[in-house]
Amino acid sequence: MTIAVLAIQGAFAEHEAVLTRLGVDFIELRQRRDLEQHYDGLILPGGESTVQGKLLRELNLFDKLKDQIVKGLPTLATCAGLILLAKQLSNDTLTHFGTLPVTVKRNAYGRQLGSFYTEEDFGDLGRLPMTFIRAPYIEAASPKVRVLAKVNGNIVGVKYINQIGISFHPELNDDTSIHQMFLEMVYNQ
């Protein structure tokens, strides 16, 4: 099993470190020719969604990746990654892949002083550490989307077919259960 990690900007090395700990092979996607390799799943890391969205298009990665996600490539998206997947952004007119039927609010907790750490239940995985960095949250989700986690009444984790979208950063904490859940989904694919 090989996981592709979008490595154009942001905290991709942190996801790679989790994959290494779990003994999973990965490749980095930085430019068009990287998409020629074989991979079974995709991780869209945190970072700045404006930068990532722009580079995805300019480096010619956008159309093929979107097509692969639509066709069911298992995808784990964290923070900026969630913004890339969202069908709608409540405070931005420019959307990106738009493959996940949710409405996401960017910088929903304000500036860096609004960043926080908490622990909450996540799907069937129990209580997990959650680190929110200038994070978005999900304002509304289509009924077809399964809500996995809420913090203070706001949706912060969802699953829709093969896409897992999370507004916090599981790659920054020691708990690997969200990555394991994603890898299981890839394995069962």
Binding site: G46, G47, E48, Q112, S115, F116, I133, L172
Partner: peptide, 14 residues
């Protein structure tokens, strides 16, 4: 402090 270091991690590669 951890959250502040982590914001810098999000800026990496930028």
């Amino acid at each position: 402090y951890t959250l502040n270091r982590e914001l810098a991690q999000m800026l990496k590669g930028g």
